[in-house]
Design a protein around this nucleic acid. Structure first.
Lengths: 163, 163
DNA sequence: CTTGAAACAAAAGAGAA
DNA sequence: TTCTCTTTTGTTTCAAG
């Protein structure tokens, strides 16, 4: 079962949707917004955290202001054995500049999101990866010149509750 | 000036780095972690919010648990006049399923991140875009089969403070 | 679900290093 | 200034109905 066998009602979804954009709202105000008194709202929230639907809370930092450059990289591996994928993925997880990595179908193996000080730093990172013999065969680089939209919360409320 | 002419010291960076992963930490604990008493820590925090370095707070929701599918799309526009870009970008911003959109160099014009219930819904969304006469010439679809890493906070502490 | 009370955190001021 | 300390106000948590 997708949600660990737990059902979510409209209010739970509303709570999630609110927290998705206002992670530091007070529990009192959250309760008001979903038309509940603080206590039941609080126990719903606890439940949502406990079953892992809320994975944590984060401040959204204006990374642009630090002059960080975003680069996307399409990567293809030399060999497609399970062990090679595993090694590559372990490497991805370890590198802090790599902020996202997804395995995708359609010719390329991985789509990788990188945040670096500048393109030079990116190139050094790639060189390090290549030297490392991690199975990287081919890669394409796409330097982001403008962010039109980023981390925009997906519409939870349109979703059906739980299975 | 990149940071609005405001300087950040080690403590400010530390505060940002902590909030980036623990967005709901209490101000008292935050103060302890940066070796300050609550008040000065609180005013630093206020300042960081005020100058826009902290854009907000968000709960991280386990979207997988909702059975959402992530799709990346590379898009190329028919025409490259400023007005065409603007129209396309305005459209991107309006569609809630589009959670990310970056303008990139290197052959393709945009890299677009989409969150949908299933691939079918994605296809309908693309059809809608095409019908709309929004200038979309060619697109490539990459369905995410596995997230190795996602929204991993970039290393702020390595950065030089401010200019 | 509601009330209510004890424990805790946030916010703001007064003043010392 | 920038911090520590203290007070007031508001929030969180949980026990009992």
């Amino acid at each position: 079962m997708k949600n660990g066998g737990l059902k979510l009602d409209e209010r739970d979804l509303r709570i999630l949707a609110i927290l998705q954009t206002e992670g530091r709202i007070t529990k009192t105000e959250l309760a008001e917004r979903v038309n509940l008194s603080p206590t039941p709202c609080w126990s719903r929230l606890k439940r949502l955290e406990k079953i892992g639907l809320i994975e944590g809370y984060r401040a959204k930092i204006a990374l642009k202001r630090f002059g960080l450059t975003m680069v996307f990289m399409e990567a293809e591996l030399e060999s497609h054995r399970a062990a090679d994928f595993a090694r590559f993925e372990a490497e991805m997880r370890q590198i802090p500049e790599i902020t996202g990595c997804w395995s995708v179908g359609g010719g390329i193996d991985y789509l990788i999101q990188v945040m670096v000080k500048d393109v030079d730093t990116y190139q050094r990172l790639v060189d390090r990866l290549l030297e490392r013999g991690i199975g990287l065969k081919r890669y394409y680089t796409y330097v982001v010149t403008k962010a039109i939209k980023e981390d925009s919360p997906p519409p939870l409320e349109r979703l059906r509750a739980a299975d």
